[in-house]
Design a protein around this nucleic acid. Sequence first.
DNA 1: AAAGTGATCATG
DNA 2: ATGATCACTTTG
Length: 173
Amino acid sequence: MKKVKPSFYKQDALIVGPSLLGKILVRKLDNGKIFRYRITETEVYRGEEDKACHARFGITNRTMPLYAEGGLIYVYLCYGIHYLFNIVTGEKGKPQAVLIRGIENHNGPGKLTKALNIDLNLNKENLNTSKEIWLEEDGYQPFYKTTSRIGIDYATEPYKSIEWRFVLIDKDS
DNA sequence: AAAGTGATCATG
DNA sequence: ATGATCACTTTG
C-alpha cells in the first residue's frame, strides 16, 4: 500500500477522474481513528467553459482552490446541508476538479463527507502533505462505466449530457 | 414530489 | 441588506 504521488494529481481531470476509482481514501481523525475506503464513484468538473463547473463564473473567493495546482482539496457546502469533497487536478491556473461521489459503504457525495467528518476545515488542504487525509493505491485495476453527471440541470449542452461521471463496476456482482 | 438549510454571489 | 441559486438527502 503506497501513497499516491504528487504527479498523479497534476494530470488532466479527465485522466484523474476514472483513475481515482479503486484508490483508497484515508482519513485520520483528531482522536486517532483511521478510516480507509475505496473510491467507487467520481465526477469531473473541468474548466470555465464547462457550464456545470463552479469555475464557470470565473475566479471568486469560493472557487479559488479550483485554480490551484492539482493535489489540493476543495470542500464546499451544498444546499445548505451537505459538504462535498473534491480533489483539484491539473496545472495551476486551469480550474478543474474531481468530485468524490461515492466510497465503499457510503454512496452519495453528502453522505461520505458526513461519515468521514469532512467539512470546511479541510478546504484547501494538500493531499500530499496532510496528516489528516490522503490517498493510497494498491494496484487495483478498475472496471467502470461512464454516465452523464448528476444534479446539473442548470448547465447547457454539451456539458449537460457529457459523460463525465465514472462509476466502478463490482466484478463480483 | 417536495421540503429543509445556509454559504455564496449579484443586486441595490 | 436582501434575494436567488444550488455537484443533496430524506420523508411521505
